[in-house]
Amino acid sequence: MQQIIKCGNITADTEQTIHTIRHDKLFVLTDEYTNRYCLPMIEGIPAIREAQQIVIPANDTNKTIENVIQVWRNLTQKGATRHSLLINLGGGMVTDLGGFAAATFKRGITYINIPTTLLGAVDAAVGGKTGVNFEGLKNEIGAFYPAEYVLIWSEFFRTLPQKEILSGFAEMIKHALIHSQLDLEKLLTFSANDIDYAWLNDMVHRSVSIKEAIVEKDPFEKNIRKALNLGHTVGHAFESFAIEAGKPVPHGYAVAWGLIAELYLSHRLCDFPKEKVQKTVRFLQANYGALPIGCDDYEALFKIMQHDKKNEAGVINFTLLSDIGNVKIDQNADKELIFEALDFYRDSVGL
């Protein structure tokens, strides 16, 4: 089972974790940014200094099969074996892509995730989902293959711009919605303009523990793990739509907008309380702005939703709520109601 370590000293904890895992060669995967700004924070470790380095382009638009091939090629050319160890040092793109490369190279090698973004810490690096985008669709190719260890060090978050903090925070809001009113109330007090990093650190580990408990019960998303898809059917459609338009948006922002639409569906289909929709939507609207879409874009968004991995027998599946902490998986909405939810999103964000 994946082990999550709350780091007090990133150098000591990384070194100890490396020594815990038997391996013949060590490889470190970074993107252009984490190679420059985050790798130096752990380069004092002799094993890291001696490791083979693999660097890929940054940003989610580069989460592609071509860059997985680049990682495979580096591993092959630099002598990796089935007993080698890969460290993914980066945000969600690096941990998703690196995890998929590890899952498939020589039918699977061991890897460690060290997320450097809030989104990576609370979402991508934890839970074992790996993958890349393909043909304009989010995470279309991938595998369930968890990291042996995930090392979370909150000091990385202090280097992030506000937009990156908010991107990760949207996933924390989702975790709170599927878990408890108390967790949600705490998060809705957050101010992105005056960040209390000690408080944020505590909330991050609380959020990770919520996800971890769900994944432990259902590692391959056959049942309750589908709870983690709240906001993602519409959110992934928004994200893919933006990528296709050449104007990519942060994953967490797309999830925030997806939550707005899916809370509306929760109200219509599962009687989720209207006042709780309004309170959560006010926070999301105030912090995440809007993806500019018009009614003419609904058909394209609907078509993207038809490719969602959660679908069965051609029916679009949603994870919805009847109340905070009361999850309803495998919910269906017809096209007309989905378009209503997109109307509600546009009205809520002022489009």
Rank of each mutant, 00 (worst) to 15 (best):
K217G: 06
Q285T: 12
E239L: 12
H19E: 07
R268T: 06
G325L: 06
N59R: 15
E50Y: 07
T104S: 12
L337A: 00
A51S: 14
A300L: 02
K310W: 00
M172F: 04
D183K: 11
C295H: 10
T61N: 07
E312L: 05
I87E: 09
L166E: 08
A101Y: 02
F272E: 13
T30Y: 08
M1E: 05
Y37P: 01
L320K: 07
H83M: 03
I141A: 05
E15R: 15
K138C: 04
A254W: 03
F190M: 15
K186I: 04
D330G: 00
V68W: 04
I65C: 06
V208T: 04
V349T: 12
Y145D: 05
N133Q: 04
E185K: 12
S348H: 09
F100R: 06
R36T: 09
L119K: 00
T117V: 09
I45M: 11
F156T: 02
L291M: 09
D194T: 08
E336V: 03
I56C: 10
N35W: 11
F169S: 01
E262M: 14
I224A: 05
A192L: 06
G131T: 12
L291E: 03
K274I: 11
L184Q: 05
P146K: 02
A102Q: 11
V71N: 09
L86Q: 07
K309M: 01
D183H: 14
Y298R: 00
H83L: 03
G314F: 00
G142Y: 03
E148N: 06
S84R: 08
I21N: 12
A256H: 07
P161W: 14
E244T: 06
A341R: 04
D96H: 05
T116N: 11
N59T: 07
C270G: 03
Y288D: 12
N193G: 09
L230H: 04
E43H: 14
E140Q: 11
T64D: 14
K63N: 08
D202I: 07
K217P: 04
T81W: 00
V122R: 01
A242N: 06
L89W: 06
K25W: 12
F169N: 01
E43V: 02
A147M: 10
R107V: 04
A256S: 08
K174N: 02
G44L: 11
D218E: 12
E148T: 09
R206I: 06
Q77D: 10
G128F: 06
D60L: 08
T81S: 08
I316A: 00
T17D: 14
L187E: 02
A47I: 01
A101G: 02
P273G: 07
Q77M: 15
K211P: 01
Q162T: 10
E239W: 05
I293E: 02
K6H: 15
V315N: 00
I87A: 08
C270N: 13
F105E: 06
Y253N: 11
K279F: 13
M305L: 13
M93S: 10
L188P: 15
E340Q: 10
A124P: 03
Y111H: 12
Q52S: 13
K274L: 13
A213Q: 15
S209K: 10
K247C: 11
E43Q: 14
Q2Y: 07
T11W: 04
G235F: 13
G350D: 07
D296T: 14
H23G: 08
Q331P: 03
F144A: 05
L228F: 06
F157Y: 13
V234T: 09
